[in-house]
Amino acid sequence: MIADKGEYMENSMPKAIDLAALKTGGLIKQKEKDLFVIRLRTPVGKISADELDKISNISKKHGSGMLHFTVRQGIEIQGIKFDDLQTAKDELEADGIRVGACGPRFRVVTACPGEGICPNGLSPSQEVGLSLDEEFYGEEEGLDLPHKFKVTVAGCTSCCPKPQENDVGFHGQVEPELVEDDCNGCGVCEVTCKEGSIVMDDNGLPIKDDDKCIYCGDCISSCPTDAWVKKRTGLAAYAGGRWGRHPELGKLVAEFLTAEEASALIRKSLAFYKSSGKRGERLGVTINRIGFDKFKEHVL
């Protein structure tokens, strides 16, 4: 990363480059001499066609004409010459395109399309993700962390954006409730429930085993007569997940959180990580060292 080459840059830079801005990341050295990648901040992987046009123009003007989509829904403009770096960054910012993060800090939040787009969606993952990104990205509490800190929001229990692989991840969930008078006993919920939580009783009514229910809402969405209704909806929260060399899945911290409670959980997790994490370790390692129960005491 360019931040590691600060000295080299200061001595050799042909034009003023904003070193303070480099600390927020997004400028990454390529393997090839004098070439850089600019990583863009595209929270929840959402971008307008007009913005994409602007990015395309900058890529053709200053870069190699190639873009790369990162696994965290970001866009990287490849092949920007060192001499053009500041100009390209200025032009992007003038176009309203923000440069994104690398390094030990709160990263750009990812999310699936969520309810409104995805037929399976149970929560507004895009809105929740954008709101969390606005609240924490580039803010003091998310900077100068022991290591990177990744957050994602999944709209449902299918967990497409992998909340259990993030430092803190969320997924939408819904608790079903049966309105018996509306049930015609068709049994679609019994065959639809992948968890084996619903069994039709002798009277032809579905009986739900709460211990097996994972709050996916398949019974609600498939019910022909709308007899299964939403009792409550919210976000399940996982913490301590990561990929990389030593992957580990995050553990369930809380269920049925509101968006405000999800935000509070991140705020407290960042504070815990900042005060208890050792340099270079991810949140999950800190949690393993200090204890999951103690972590929960800190954040709930």
Partner: peptide, 15 residues
């Protein structure tokens, strides 16, 4: 049945 419901039709019976 879910998709039919989403399109605004009514599922009267599943046998």
């Amino acid at each position: 049945p879910r998709s039919v419901k989403d399109e605004g039709h009514q599922v009267l019976k599943v046998i």
